[in-house]
């Protein structure tokens, strides 16, 4: 929370990237506390590790100072933010308490996954069996999203570089 506020306030983008890395690491440890080791693993490696390196790579291409924003009246945006925030907070009253056994989430397919995973899939890590087998379509979709990201980056950045090289040869 502190790092998030500081990240918004700071103008030095290098420090902001570092703060985001710390923020990621803190949320990863929060996930560990909540017994979600797989999620924490992903958060630590992707959020705190690779994403920070990518951000730094981007910074090396641009500048590390944020442009000072043009001063304009913040009243309307403040109003929108307050209303949205109030609506979200009102929504949280309907969320069941953390760890409540009567949650709808604990009564749909989760008991089936937890109890029958060992007989049906035979893998001790239920997260893996849900991810790869029960929810195979979702994971296939995620992999395709990652694939698309690479294609996009290659088209946007990788392709432009080659074209400029070709232009150099021509000239």
């Amino acid at each position: 929370m502190v790092t998030a506020v500081a990240a918004v306030r700071l103008r030095d983008l290098f420090a902001v990237v570092m703060l985001f890395g710390i923020y990621s690491l803190v949320s990863a440890s929060l996930f560990v506390v909540m017994d979600a080791v797989d999620v924490a693993f992903t958060e630590a490696s992707v959020g705190a590790g690779v994403a920070t390196v990518f951000m730094l790579g981007t910074l090396s291409l641009t500048t590390h100072r944020e442009k000072t924003p043009i001063a304009r009246k913040p009243l309307l945006s403040l109003l929108v933010v307050i209303i949205t925030g109030a609506a979200l907070m009102y929504g949280t009253y309907d969320i069941p308490h953390y760890g409540d056994a009567n949650d709808p989430i604990h009564h749909h397919v989760a008991p089936h996954y937890l109890e029958d995973s060992m007989e049906e899939i035979g893998i001790p890590n239920v997260v893996s069996s849900v991810l790869a087998s029960y929810r195979g379509y979702d994971t296939l979709g995620e992999t395709t999203v990652v694939f698309t990201a690479a294609i996009g980056v290659l088209i946007l950045i990788g392709g432009a570089r080659r074209r400029s090289k070709r232009d150099d040869e021509r000239s």
């Binding site: 690779v50 390196v53 790869a132 087998s133 992999t143 990652v146 694939f147 990201a149 980056v153 950045i157």
Partner: peptide
């Protein structure tokens, strides 16, 4: 199935991450 599927995910993710890093760097 899970082994092969995870292998596929691993290969794609590793290649994508290094590709993005190469492009940026």
């Amino acid at each position: 199935g899970i082994l092969l599927v995870e292998l596929g995910v691993g290969i794609t993710v590793a290649s994508v991450m290094v590709t993005i890093f190469y492009s940026f760097a």
